[in-house]
Nucleic acid binder design. Structure first.
Lengths: 239, 239
DNA sequence: CGTTTAATTGAGGAAAGTCAAGTGAAGTGG
DNA sequence: CCACTTCACTTGACTTTCCTCAATTAAACG
């Protein structure tokens, strides 16, 4: 630990990459210290307990959020009460997407969450002035769009085992892109939520896990921690 | 037709809405005449024949595109040769999304296409300077992100008929949002491509069409033109 | 330690996928 | 202008896969 100073941990941060510059797959912090402190001035830090609802779809969009730590799910509730998870959001992600001044999704904290909150008017006036910030937001939105497309690829898979395999690869690549790489993958969501994300029943998720472990491709320490034992096989299965 | 002057039809245009302002669902042109002419100076108009490939996934991202007229599909080819369509793109849409300087999708013209093309370096340097343009690009990216999420909602549906019903609603709302509303819906893609977008086989698409027409909910003039006869029933089916 | 919630496992049925044949439409060349 | 070729779409029969419902086991929490 050679660093003498600790970077302010409660400040906004955007992690992504310039889509038009070659990169190694590991994402970088886009905001400069200067930008971060200027943003800090116009927002506030908020906390959410595990399981807490952050906002509901259809309500007035009063603020946008930037996750400092924790995991959030963005989901929509169908007319029949079924939930579909649109995205899992991690530290350095942005959320609070709106349409016509209303939130388009509901969001809920899956773990205890610390987030940076900016009121929409303040954000808007900042965005219409600060081209450097804008560019970074554009980079981040491009990344989120790519992830949404990746998600649609996942959902289009028909068979359960390849689907889950692809999901695990996404999670791993996600964790490695932000340097949170231990030897194991941590699942911040339960089986039901995995099912709601990949588009299958929780039973099918459970069965797919079983076949993957039975084939020795993944090993599960605990229901929420697993290790990829055969990365090549996983790649072959996910296609 | 009270207008005396004709707006330059070959200039770039972005159609979307400020996500933080209440709107009627009909999207507006975000660029001012001034911005449009400044963009015109740094890009060029290009044409593609029906069926022409625009670029391939994995190749170096040299330019971004803005559709002036026509329809484009953005798709990815799996290892087994199967294609999944990530998005259909219409006039006033942006595309040319990259990651690490490579295109993440392939794109192909479904109809004759006229597009405005901007080289990446020119676009980058413009984006790092022009906050007004940036803000509009951000609005557009938010809209594309919402559409991608809508697509994932569609893909998560399990049954064929509700899936197709939701797809038709998307298409209609898309056409009405840009004021291209005749009484009928035009399908610029074939059954196979619908299947690749909604995640089912072309046979299933065909059967779902049949049940919708058999129930009198849609009427098809021709395989590519249909009318929604019972909008309420369609809404009820799609959920 | 008992209670509650999450996850696994099993059996049966519904739905779409696949394979294959047939029909219709569009476009080509005589 | 018409016959022919081709491609897109439709329709049918059969198989596979996952969802649903139900029972059981495992883990988390007070």
């Amino acid at each position: 630990m050679a660093r003498a100073s600790i970077a302010t941990p409660q400040a906004p941060a955007i992690r992504a990459d310039d889509p038009w510059v070659a990169s190694s797959g590991k994402h970088h912090q886009l905001l400069t210290e200067d930008e971060r402190s200027r943003l800090t001035a116009i927002g506030s830090v908020v906390w959410f307990n595990k399981g807490a609802q952050i906002y509901q779809q259809g309500t007035n969009a009063s603020a946008a959020f930037n996750i400092i730590s924790g995991v959030v799910k963005a989901y929509r509730t169908g007319a029949d009460g079924s939930e579909h998870i649109v995205a899992f959001l991690f530290s350095d992600d942005l959320f609070g997407l709106a349409e016509g001044a209303k939130y388009t999704n509901s969001t809920r904290a899956l773990t205890p969450v610390t987030a940076f909150q900016i009121a929409i008017p303040a954000l808007r006036s900042k965005l219409t002035r600060d081209a450097a910030l804008d560019f970074h937001v554009i980079c981040k939105l491009c990344q989120e769009l790519r992830q949404a497309q990746q998600h649609s690829l996942l959902l289009a898979r028909r068979q359960a085992v390849p689907k889950l395999a692809a999901f695990l690869q996404l999670l791993e690549q996600h964790q490695s892109a932000r340097g949170e790489l231990g030897a194991d993958i941590y699942l911040p969501m339960n089986r039901s939520e995995i099912g709601e994300y990949v588009g299958m029943s929780l039973e099918a998720v459970s069965r797919a896990f079983r076949t993957l472990t039975a084939r020795g491709i993944v090993k599960s320490r605990d229901r929420r921690h697993l290790v990829i034992a055969d990365r090549n096989a996983l790649q072959a299965i996910s296609g």
